[in-house]
Each structure stands twice: as structure tokens, then as C-alpha cells.
Design a binder for these strands. Structure first.
Lengths: 121, 121
DNA sequence: GTAACCACTATACTAAAGTATAGCACCCGT
DNA sequence: ACGGGTGCTATACTTTAGTATAGTGGTTAC
């Protein structure tokens, strides 16, 4: 009976947690989100700069993903109306904090590769 | 000139890192991987147990995702040929270590929700 | 005036991920 | 001999993600 209570607690915690993890996954999953975030790690960038740095991305995808990241509060978009309109993108506070998550992913990824002695790309 | 060297270093590190992160993402992304891993967090489970616990999953998806996770070394599949053949799934060492990554995702996810004062589902 | 840069958007497509539904082969209980 | 459980697989479909290619409207440089 006390056990049932505990199970419920575990279940509600774990569903909260699954939500939080999904939030995080939505933010980083997809082919281009990571390269964009990585590219912005070292400072603000303009559209064309990103397009040039991220090899293979089309402007459609870059535009779409930046919009996504902006909506999700990861990236800030600053428009300066100098006369050839200038737009700069930078990471938000949340975006910067993402680095911790990425670090733990890097750690796990390298660890896992070692444990499984290389596979995939 | 010394700078160019450093840039190269940064670039090669960051491409290594992007690979590692992608390994991690491949392992956890998709609609059902997380619920499966979460379900196995509390001990070994059989196919039908997982199917019942993970609401909405079809046997096709469960089978496919389990195969995926097995190939990627996240889940171990143990077949006991008791007379109604029994199959048990459990997390591998790597799978268990994933919890650290998930924890940092949970942390970020909750943090981010607070900073953005709730959106989405 | 025309070529090129900037920051995109539109349209149309292909490929990958996920769903729905059915079925198989085996076993057990009644 | 049937209804139900276990551990799946097969086929066909829809939905989402990503690609390819072209075009817009403004600015500046030659």
C-alpha cells in the first residue's frame, strides 16, 4: 500500500522528467540545430556567415531552423536597420546553458565509442 | 599564424565533439527510445511488459526500436528457452550510463521552462 | 545598367520516421 | 477445438523532415 504510493510518486516524477527530456531533445534534434548552436557558441553571427560556415545547409533550412530556435528561446535575433539591413543571431542564456548538456553528450558519446570499440560513421 | 593553428585545433575538436554528440542523439532521438529506456531503468522487462507499459506503441515500433537499441549497444536481449520462449530486455552498461545524460537534459529542460515561463504541451 | 551581396521566401519534390492493421507460430488452460 | 497469451514480422499507408531550385526586394560597387 505504501508501495503503491511510491510507485505513483515514481511515475509522476518520471513523466515530468520525460517531458523535460523531450523539451531538450526537441531543441537539439534534427540535422542542423547542433551545427547552428555550435557555430553560435563562439559569438554572434549573421545569416550569410552561418550559411557559409555550416557546409551543406540551404538557406531554407537555415532560416527555418533559426526561426525554430528563436521560438524555443535558444537564439536571439537582433535586427539593426543599418542601410543594408543587418541581422545578427546569438545564443540566449538558455542557449548558452545548453553547453552543459552537450558536454555530457560528448562525454557519453566518447565513452560509448570506447566501450563498443567503434562502429558507424 | 599561431591563431590559425589554434583555429584548426578548435575546429578538429569541435568536429570530434559534433560526432560524439550525434552518436548520443542517434541513440535517444525518436518518439519511443526514451520511454523504452526509462521503462528499463527499473529492471529487466519482457516484450509484452514493455508493450503494456509504453502506452500507444505498436509492436512493430517496439520491435524495431529494441533492435536499434540492441545494435547500438544500449540494450541487451536475453532469450531463455523455457517452454513458452521467454525474452528479457535490459540496459547495458552504456545504457545505464545514459542516465547521466538524461539527468543533464532534465536539469536543462526544467531550467529552460522556468526561464521561458512555460510553453508547449 | 548590370553584377553581386544580403536576408530571406515559395514551390515542388524525395526520403525518413512513424502508424494501422493483419497475421504467424508456438504454447497453455478448459 | 477454442480463446487467449507470447514474441514477433509483413504490407501498406501517412506524416514529418530535409533537399533542390528559383525568385524577391533592397543596396552598393564598377
Amino acid at each position: 500500500m505504501d508501495q503503491t504510493k511510491q510507485f505513483k510518486k515514481i511515475k509522476s516524477c518520471s513523466s515530468q522528467c520525460v517531458l523535460a527530456v523531450n523539451d531538450t531533445l526537441n531543441v537539439v534534434s534534427g540535422k542542423w540545430k547542433l551545427p547552428i548552436i555550435a557555430s553560435l557558441q563562439y559569438g554572434t553571427k549573421r545569416f550569410k556567415e552561418l550559411e557559409r560556415e555550416i557546409v551543406g545547409i540551404s538557406p531554407r533550412m537555415l532560416s527555418k531552423e533559426l526561426k525554430d530556435l528563436e521560438i524555443n528561446g535558444i537564439v536571439k535575433r537582433n535586427v539593426y536597420d543599418a542601410m543594408p539591413v543587418m541581422v545578427e543571431y546569438e545564443l540566449s542564456a538558455s542557449g548558452i546553458l545548453l553547453q552543459e548538456v552537450l558536454d555530457s553528450m560528448i562525454k557519453w558519446g566518447l565513452q560509448h565509442r570506447k566501450m563498443n570499440m567503434v562502429r558507424s560513421n
